[in-house]
Design a protein around this nucleic acid. Structure first.
Lengths: 185, 185, 185, 185
DNA sequence: TATGAATGAGATTTCATTCAT
DNA sequence: AATGAATGAAATCTCATTCAT
C-alpha cells in the first residue's frame, strides 16, 4: 500500500466517521451532504471524491457496523470457556460495545430500514444456534432468534430512550435467558 | 354524531389506511404525498383537507398504533388467570396482532426514529413490571425491559426478514423467558 | 326591480362589503376567498354565485370606490361658494370621507397596483384644473396634479401609519396650498 | 475584501437588480422566483444561494430604496444655502432621482403594503420639520406631512400613469408650496 | 485533489375554481 | 340557491450531484 493509498483511505475514513456522527445526531433522512462535509471539515464536492453518493455513505456505515459486529459474535463463540459462559460473554460484550459506541449504534435505526440487516441477523442466528446447541441439544434456531431478539430489543429501547442504563441490563438479560422467569421452587 | 361527521371521519380513515399501506411498502422517507393520494384514489391536494402535512400522516399512524398497542397490553394484564398464563397471553397476543397487521407493524421502523416510542416503551415496561412482580416479587423493571426487548427484538427481525415465521415464535420466546436456556438437571 | 332582484343585489353587496373588510385587514394578496366567505357568513362556493372570480371582488371594490370618489369631487366643485371655499371643501370633504371609511381607504393600497386609478386621477386632475382656473387663471393641470398629490400623499402616509391624525391634517394642507410656506412679510 | 467576496456580492447585486426590474414590470405579487432567475440569466435554485426567500428579495429592494432615500433627504437638508433653496433642492432632487430610476420607484407600490415605509416617512417628516422651522418658526410636523405628501402624491400619480411628465412637476410643486394658490394682489 | 457555485428535478403545500348533491 | 369536498395547476423551496476552475 503506497502512502498515497493510505492517505486516501485515511481521508475516506475521516469522512465516514464524520458521516456516522452526523447520521447519529440527526438521522440519515435529515442529514445533508453539506452537514457531513462540514463535520469532516471539507467542502461539499469533496465528499464525492470518496463516495459515489449520499447513500453510499450509509452503505459504508453499514459495512463498518457489519465488520465490528462479526468480530463480537465470533469472539464470543470461538472461546474455550463453557458454553454458558460464552453466552454470557456474548451478551455482555455486545451491550458494552454498543454502550461504548453510541453513534455507531444509533445508525441501526436507519439501517433497519435497508435490506442489509437481513443477512446480518441470519448469520447471527446461525452462529448463535451453534452455541445454543452446545448448551442444550434441543435448542435450535427459534431460540437463537429469541436470543438475538432480546439483545436487539433492549438495544432498541435504549436507542429510543437513551436514559435507559444499557450497561446495567446485561445481568437481567442473563437472568431471564438463563434461568427464566418462572417461580423458583 | 351527524352523518356529515361520520363521512368525514370515514374519508380520513380511508386516507390514513392508504398512507399506512404506502408507508409499509416504501418506508415513510420514500413515500410521497402523491403515492398516498393515488393509493387512496384521490387527488394530491385532497389529502390536505384531512391532514395538515405529510408528517401528520405519520403522527396519525402512530396514534392508531399506540391505541391498538395499549389494548393488547391491558387485555393481557387485566385478566384473572394466573400471572404466568397472562404473560403467555401477552406474548402470544402481541405477536398475533403483528402477524395479522403487517403493514401496521412495518411502520414501527419509521416510528422508532421519532420521539413517540419512548413513552410507549416506558408505559409498557411499567405495566409489565407489575405483572412480573405477581410472578416473582424479586423481578423488577430491568426484567420488564428484557421482556419488552424480546418481543420487539423478534418483531424487528421479522420486519427486516419477513420470511421469519413470526407466528411460530411465541413458543420459543416463552420457552426461553419462562424456563431459561440453562441445562436441565 | 323585483324582490328577487333586490335580494340578489343585497346579497352581492353583503359579500362585497365583507370582501372590503377582509382586504382592508390583510391586503388583497393575502386574502383568501374562504376568508371573504367566512366574513360574509356563507360558504366558499357561494361567493362564485355573485362574483366571477377572486379578482372580480377587487374590481367591484374599485367600482364602489370610484363612484364614491366622484361624488366627493363633484360635490366640491359644483357649489356656488367662492372657488377658494370650494377648494377648502374639497380637501376637507375628501379627508373626512377617508377618515370615516378606513376599510375603504385601505384598499387603495391594492388598487394602486391595478390599472384603474389612472383614469380616476386623470378625471380628478381635469376637474380640479377647472376649479383652480376659477381661483387664478394662470393655474393649470400641473397645479391640479400637485393638489391631487397632496391629498393622496397625506392619505398614503396615514394608510402606512394609521396613528397619523388624518382628520386634523386638512388645515395644514390648506395652509400650505393656499398661502404657501414662504416667509411672511 | 477578498476577490471571492467581491464576486459573491456582485452576483447578489445582479440578482437583486434583476428582481427589481421584474418587480417593477409585473408587481411583486405577480413575480415568480423563476421570472427573477430568468431575468438574471441563472437557474431558479441559484437565487436561493443569495437570498433566503422570495420575500427576502423585496426586503433587500427596500433596503436599497431606504439607503438611497436617506441620501437624498440628508443632502437636501445638510446644505449651507438658504432654507427655501434647500427646500427646492429637496423637491427637485427627489423627483429627479425617481425619474431616473423608474424601476426602483415602481417598487414603492409594493413597499407601501409592507411595514417598512412607516419608519421611512416618520424619519422624513422629522427631518423636514427641522427644515421648515428654519423657513418659518411657526411651521411644524403637520406641514412636514403635507410636504412629504405632495412629493409622494405626485410620485404616486406618475407610477399609476407613467405618461405624466414627472421631471417637469418640480416647478408647480414649488409654486404651490412656496407661494400658495390664492389670488395675488 | 479540492472547491463551492450552479443546476434542476422533484417534493410539499396552497388555494381559486368547479360541481355533484 | 347554497354547499363544501374535490381538484390540480402552480408556486416555493430543497438539496444531491456536477463541473469549471
Amino acid at each position: 500500500m503506497s502512502p498515497k493509498k493510505v492517505d486516501k483511505d485515511a481521508r475516506r475514513q475521516e469522512i465516514l466517521d464524520a458521516a456516522v456522527r452526523v447520521f447519529a445526531r440527526k438521522g440519515f433522512a435529515a442529514s445533508r451532504i453539506d452537514d457531513v462535509a462540514t463535520e469532516a471539515g471539507i467542502a461539499k464536492g469533496s465528499v464525492y471524491l470518496y463516495f459515489d453518493s449520499r447513500n453510499a455513505l450509509l452503505d459504508a456505515a453499514f459495512e463498518k457496523y457489519d465488520a465490528d459486529s462479526r468480530v463480537i459474535v465470533q469472539r464470543a463463540l470461538d472461546g474455550e470457556a463453557p458454553p454458558l459462559d460464552r453466552f454470557s460473554d456474548l451478551v455482555r460484550g455486545t451491550l458494552e460495545l454498543l454502550a461504548d459506541t453510541p453513534d455507531h449504534a444509533r445508525i441501526l435505526l436507519d439501517l433497519w430500514s435497508t435490506d442489509y440487516m437481513k443477512q446480518v441477523y441470519r448469520q447471527n442466528r446461525q452462529a448463535i444456534t451453534l452455541l445454543l446447541k452446545e448448551i442444550r441439544p434441543d435448542l435450535g434456531e427459534p431460540h437463537a432468534t429469541v436470543v438475538v431478539g432480546v439483545i436487539e430489543g433492549v438495544l432498541l429501547q435504549w436507542l429510543v430512550d437513551p436514559e435507559l442504563p444499557i450497561a446495567e441490563l446485561s445481568q437481567p438479560i442473563l437472568d431471564v435467558c438463563i434461568n427464566g422467569l418462572k417461580e423458583r421452587r
